[in-house]
Design a protein around this nucleic acid. Structure first.
Lengths: 171, 171
DNA sequence: ACACCTTCGTTCGAATTTGAACAATAGGAG
DNA sequence: CTCCTATTGTTCAAATTCGAACGAAGGTGT
């Protein structure tokens, strides 16, 4: 009965020490639509990017974050944090992008251990080409489907959620 | 300059045939927080489930959907749709769950090709044990962070988004 | 009955992801 | 300066993911 959560009419009879607060119908709807929208959206964006630019969404996001950074470069760890991936995962993807000539590695002057991932000219060019199609789809599938108010709530609410998550992670 | 989208002050000078409609600050904030929240949330839930129940989020969701279905069973394709994964991905995971004794396969009477994934008693028990901890975390990290109104907007807006995505996919 | 196109679930190989273990270094307390 | 602990990025093996290709049926129209 307990789906992700709710037990509308019949909570799991008697199980755990303290019966948890299940999700009511509305909470459940919010959670389900969040998960579903996220999955569906990812799927579509992945396909679009791969077909039109030969990039995975992850790779695209790496380019985006680098392009937004001061010198088109970021420390590996910092980049991993922004992307919300594992360090090893980033190492892998940066290597891939390096092979494609879109990103380069530079050692950090102030810290021998440090490594900067740096956007190459080719990388910038690739981003310039890939961005329009990607943005158009994000707009079509998400942004333009929602009202201004809904967008504001999304930004606000999920911003809060993210902030909390970040804090916890920092522990 | 174009991150996922926005070009706040300086749009990419002149590139594509038709300059796309970049995302303004608010749209950008909504999109970023959506992506980030989704990733962070997934990461946490994944860890919690694995540690407390030895299940991946995907596996947990399979159990949830089966438990919510008429006879605790669903056709593979139907289940794959609900989960928003590839058919091959589902085949793999159902096999894993089968090895764990949480799910079984049954052939479909009316269609020789069809296969039903079916929740075993052990699977139901596992779900009963895993649900409280999972729900508690979803509540702590998302539900309880948002107000009733925000939840309503989430459910509504993202529900719409999902619905559209589903339609497109059906093509 | 026959051809034709769709659907079903699996298999296969390739790509990706993750956490743990590591070696090298940084940084701080004494 | 000298321990001791935290951090950095990589490597490694294992797990998971996907899409394309398949073999086997279903369904339809003629």
């Amino acid at each position: 009965m307990p789906s992700t959560s709710s037990a509308p009419s019949a909570p799991p009879s008697a199980a755990s020490p303290y019966e948890p607060r299940w999700l009511d119908e509305e909470e459940m709807a919010a959670w389900r639509s969040f998960v579903t929208a996220s999955n569906l959206l990812n799927r579509r964006l992945e396909r679009q990017l791969k077909e039109d630019s030969g990039l995975s969404h992850t790779q695209y996001e790496i380019l985006v974050h680098l392009s937004a950074a001061p010198a088109g470069s970021l420390r590996m760890t910092e980049l991993a944090d922004k992307l919300v991936t594992s360090k090893s995962g980033l190492t892998y993807q940066v290597t891939q992008l390096e092979k494609m000539g879109l990103v380069g590695r530079r050692s950090c002057p102030s810290d021998v251990r440090g490594v900067f991932a740096e956007l190459t000219d080719q990388g910038r060019e690739m981003l310039r080409e890939a961005a329009p199609g990607h943005v158009a789809l994000v707009r079509e599938l998400l942004i333009d489907v929602l009202s201004r108010e809904q967008l504001a709530v999304l930004a606000d609410g999920l911003g809060q959620v993210s902030a909390r998550l970040r804090l916890d992670d920092a522990l």
